[in-house]
Simulated scan of single mutants.
Amino acid sequence: MSTISHGFKSSKQDFTFGPWKVTSAKTHIMKSKDIEQLAEEMHMPSLPEMLFGDNVLRIQHTDGFGIEFNAIDALKRVNNLQDSVQVACAQEWQESRADSEHKDVVKRYDWTYTTDYKGTLLGEDLQIKVSPTSERIDLEKLKAREQIMFFEDVLLFEDELHDHGVSMISVKIRVMPTSFFVLLRFFLRVDGVLIRINDTRLYHEASKAHLPSNIL
């Protein structure tokens, strides 16, 4: 298995599970000029300190449909119009970041980068159909001791909020002989204020034609 630490090593891995192909790519942090250009395009004065714009976890069926998880689409779900956490350190953080990036105007936006991103659907002619269901992931099956045939942990972005906490989103996958499980987690800690976790879990059994998900 390849490893990566803070973007200094690159790796790309493919794994086949029946008709599904799992692809993980992990590489360096985006360059400053690319981050600045992206921030302008997204109308945000600042983006996370460690933004892995080329990191991706993709799960695609041979028929073309599937789902992937990437940092850019996750950031598109951030509220770029107002703060989500109104605390004393919010203005201090934004002003400090603005100074470091030579911004003349501090624009209000969600400085915690909170996102409700659940993944990006793939496929032009055919896509996964998302619909409400009462079915839940079988946690007992997940607890069973099965051989892990493939595992990957992909970091999409992380920011220490100017030493006031941490904001990060990552996605993990583990593939067993009869199923695969995906956990996408956004984690936020603002020191002395709050902890927030947005989880999306996907589970697929080889014998079934659907992927039950839990979103918390």
Rank of each mutant, 00 (worst) to 15 (best):
M1D: 06
M1L: 09
I4H: 06
H6N: 13
K9L: 05
K12F: 00
D14L: 11
T16Q: 07
P19V: 00
K21D: 00
K21I: 10
S24R: 00
A25K: 11
K26M: 03
K26S: 01
K26R: 08
H28R: 10
I35W: 03
Q37S: 14
Q37V: 10
S46C: 15
P48H: 02
G53L: 05
N55E: 01
H61T: 08
H61L: 11
T62C: 05
T62K: 15
D63T: 04
D63C: 09
F65M: 05
I67K: 12
I67F: 04
F69K: 02
I72S: 13
K76Q: 13
R77F: 14
N79W: 01
L81S: 04
L81M: 06
Q82Y: 07
V87W: 13
C89L: 03
A90M: 07
A90S: 12
Q91I: 14
Q94E: 00
S96E: 14
V105P: 08
R108S: 04
Y109N: 09
D110N: 12
W111L: 11
D116F: 13
G119P: 07
L122A: 02
K129M: 04
K129A: 09
S131V: 10
S131H: 11
T133W: 12
R136E: 15
E140W: 01
L142K: 12
K143H: 02
K143A: 09
R145S: 03
E152N: 06
D153R: 06
L155K: 02
L161E: 05
D163E: 13
G165V: 10
G165I: 08
S167C: 12
I169C: 03
S170P: 07
V171L: 04
R174F: 01
R174A: 03
R174I: 00
M176P: 10
S179V: 04
S179E: 11
V182H: 03
F187S: 12
L188N: 15
R189Q: 14
V190H: 15
L194K: 08
I195G: 15
I197R: 11
N198L: 11
N198P: 06
D199Q: 15
T200R: 14
T200N: 13
R201M: 14
L202W: 09
E205L: 13
E205F: 09
K208C: 12
S213W: 04
S213A: 14
S213I: 02
I215S: 04
I215Q: 01
L216D: 06
